[in-house]
Measured scan of single mutants.
Amino acid sequence: NQESVVAAVLIPINTALTVGMMTTRVVSPTGAPAEDIPRLISMQVNQVVPMGTTLMPDMVKGYAP
């Protein structure tokens, strides 16, 4: 099972992602793949992402898996 990126903390809208904001988990439906964490760092979210929420590609500005 592939791990997806999950918010480790509450991420406010327009916040640039840091490694400490993200964790990985096997979830369904799958979100952004765990191996993309290095690409996701410094990208901004376009909505509030509550802690424990799977990071879906459409939540991150300019990100395409």
Rank of each mutant, 00 (worst) to 15 (best):
N1G: 15
N1C: 15
N1Y: 13
Q2E: 11
E3Q: 13
E3W: 13
S4K: 02
S4F: 07
S4V: 06
S4P: 01
V5T: 01
V5K: 00
V5W: 07
V5P: 00
V5A: 01
V6C: 08
V6E: 01
V6W: 06
A7P: 02
A7K: 00
A7M: 07
A7G: 02
A7L: 07
A8E: 02
A8K: 11
A8S: 10
V9N: 02
V9M: 11
V9T: 11
V9Y: 05
L10E: 12
L10A: 06
L10G: 04
L10C: 15
L10W: 11
L10F: 13
I11P: 00
I11C: 07
I11F: 03
I11H: 00
I11N: 00
P12V: 09
P12Y: 09
I13T: 11
I13S: 11
N14D: 13
N14C: 10
T15V: 09
T15M: 08
A16E: 11
A16I: 14
A16P: 13
L17K: 00
L17Q: 00
L17I: 05
L17T: 02
T18R: 10
T18Q: 11
T18A: 09
V19M: 14
V19Y: 15
V19K: 13
V19S: 13
G20F: 11
G20I: 10
G20L: 12
G20E: 15
G20P: 08
G20V: 11
G20R: 12
G20A: 14
M21R: 00
M21W: 07
M21K: 00
M21G: 06
M21N: 07
M22N: 06
M22R: 00
M22L: 14
M22K: 05
M22S: 07
T23I: 12
T24Q: 08
T24C: 09
T24H: 10
R25G: 11
R25K: 13
R25V: 08
R25C: 11
R25E: 09
R25N: 08
V26A: 10
V26S: 10
V26M: 14
V27Y: 02
V27I: 02
V27F: 01
V27E: 06
V27N: 04
V27T: 12
S28R: 10
S28P: 00
S28H: 14
S28W: 15
S28D: 12
P29N: 01
P29S: 05
P29V: 05
P29M: 08
T30C: 14
T30Q: 15
T30E: 12
T30S: 14
G31D: 00
G31N: 05
G31C: 03
G31H: 05
G31P: 00
G31M: 02
A32H: 03
P33E: 03
P33V: 06
A34Q: 03
A34Y: 01
A34P: 10
A34E: 03
A34H: 03
E35Y: 15
E35K: 14
E35F: 14
E35N: 12
E35L: 11
E35M: 12
E35P: 04
D36A: 03
D36M: 08
D36K: 00
I37S: 01
I37M: 11
I37G: 03
I37V: 08
I37N: 02
P38N: 10
P38S: 10
P38A: 10
P38G: 11
P38F: 11
P38K: 09
P38C: 13
P38L: 09
P38D: 08
R39T: 10
R39C: 12
R39E: 06
L40I: 02
L40G: 00
L40D: 01
L40T: 00
I41D: 04
I41S: 05
I41Q: 01
I41V: 14
I41Y: 00
I41K: 00
S42I: 08
S42G: 15
M43H: 10
M43L: 14
M43I: 06
Q44N: 05
Q44M: 12
Q44H: 12
Q44D: 04
Q44V: 15
V45I: 04
V45Q: 03
V45E: 02
N46E: 02
N46Y: 08
N46G: 05
Q47R: 12
Q47D: 02
Q47G: 01
Q47H: 04
Q47N: 02
V48T: 15
V48D: 15
V48S: 13
V49C: 04
V49P: 02
V49K: 01
V49D: 00
V49T: 03
P50N: 08
P50L: 10
M51V: 10
M51H: 05
M51G: 05
M51Q: 13
G52V: 04
G52A: 02
G52W: 08
G52M: 06
T53S: 12
T53M: 13
T54L: 05
T54G: 04
T54A: 02
L55D: 02
L55G: 03
L55N: 03
L55V: 05
M56I: 00
M56W: 05
M56V: 04
M56S: 04
M56P: 01
M56K: 05
P57V: 09
P57D: 02
P57G: 05
D58S: 14
D58L: 07
M59L: 08
M59I: 02
M59Q: 03
V60F: 06
V60R: 00
K61P: 11
K61Y: 13
K61G: 05
G62T: 04
G62S: 04
G62P: 04
G62L: 05
G62K: 02
G62V: 01
Y63K: 01
Y63V: 03
Y63N: 03
Y63F: 05
A64L: 14
A64R: 15
P65Y: 09
P65D: 10
P65V: 12
P65Q: 11
